[in-house]
Design a protein around this nucleic acid. Structure first.
Lengths: 213, 213
DNA sequence: TAGATTGTTAATCGATTAACAATC
DNA sequence: TAGATTGTTAATCGATTAACAATC
């Protein structure tokens, strides 16, 4: 995964949200600057790694001073695309879709829920967090008209492949996939899978085998 | 993280659920054996990696034959602790807790939801997927009495640290943490964090910067 | 200026891939 | 037996850590 032509390892990108989170905490505590060393203690990673990570994206610090928290927080937010105001739709108004629609942490991070779709006539028309559930048949038209960026897929595995393909067709830029299936798409679209069962099984392993790192 | 005294890299363990999933698929299709090579094509990883991964846990294959799908699937399930029948409670009966309580994929994997707790008097007494929501004040007693293994934490960040500490005290073996906080516990308990916002931000990065691997 | 701390290069460590002898 | 494919060792690649000159 690239940044300004430079290849950035996926592990580094995975760490960015965590940095963003910690810097947000520091901001809240009115801490204005921090050294890689101080941050490394808080986050339990090496100062070396912190400096290396940041330097994939350019120098955000100042010798002898450290990093300006507000500036760094803002820059990482920018890199993560949080300033883009990406719009989302939820496809699948089951329990999970319901939960995500009501999860206001996402709005805080700059994402905006635009609509919710389902193909169950029982669910169509019901209101979830102020959004009237719409028929999936109207989905493509809506996405095109409203320039939707992200589709949150909380529908059954059986329907996800076909639905994702339809959405990719009409210009969706990324899928946040909660279905227990791995999307194989014809189009080049960003995909982030959230396989909750996998996570639970990992926890299960840790319990079974002992968690000695 | 160890297995039979041998150190197993965390990346390998993270891959186990995925193997388990694919082998389950093969089973459903009545495929009885598979070579590391054939599996590598399906899963888009190298055959070398597959063989290395499995060999952390012992030899499951047979030269000239490959791997018996049912046997391998079963063994990985065993390693992951899916045969233990771990019992769970959900703490926090908000939208997310609600969704997880109704997510039957977990029961399929051998986990059993035993009870749901919340401290909101509005929620206590309501029924979620057959479970009556109980007062958090009764949580410790319940956990001790029913020998609960896993606590699923879907409560607000402000309450999670204290609640987790209380649960660790009465013998919980693992936390599946959905709260946007990193648990720092006195006790040695397994923790698996699900930070949904982090995942969404990673997707956001991929969209912003282009997803060229 | 002296002290602190970054940005960056070099060294180390660990994970992935390749290769092949063992063996079913 | 011949062919296939594992288990495992060795080679490579990439990520992490250490070190230090640059510089605020």
């Amino acid at each position: 995964m690239n940044y300004n032509g430079k290849r950035v390892p996926a592990v580094v990108i995975k760490r960015l949200p965590r940095y963003y989170r910690y810097l947000g905490e520091l901001l809240k505590q009115d801490i204005q600057r921090i050294s890689s060393n101080a941050l490394s203690e808080k986050m339990k990673v090496t100062a070396s790694q912190i400096r290396q990570d940041f330097n994939y994206f350019g120098g955000f610090g100042q010798q002898g001073y450290g990093y300006n928290v507000a500036y760094l927080h803002n820059e990482i937010g920018e890199i993560l695309g949080l300033k883009e105001g990406y719009t989302t739709i939820i496809v699948g108004a089951g329990y999970l879709g319901h939960a995500l629609a009501n999860h206001n942490a996402f709005e805080k991070r700059g994402f905006r829920l635009s609509a919710i779709f389902d193909n169950d006539t029982q669910k169509i028309g019901s209101i979830i967090n102020g959004h009237r559930v719409q028929d999936t048949a109207l989905m493509e038209e809506y996405v095109r008209e409203h320039n939707i960026d992200i589709a949150i897929l909380t529908l059954p595995r059986s329907a996800v492949e076909e639905t994702a393909e339809r959405l990719a067709e009409c210009g969706i830029k990324g899928f946040w996939n909660y279905s227990y299936a791995e999307l194989k798409l014809k189009h080049k679209v960003a995909v982030e899978n959230v396989h909750l069962s996998d996570s639970l099984m990992t926890l299960s392993y840790k319990i079974k085998q002992g968690n000695d790192e």
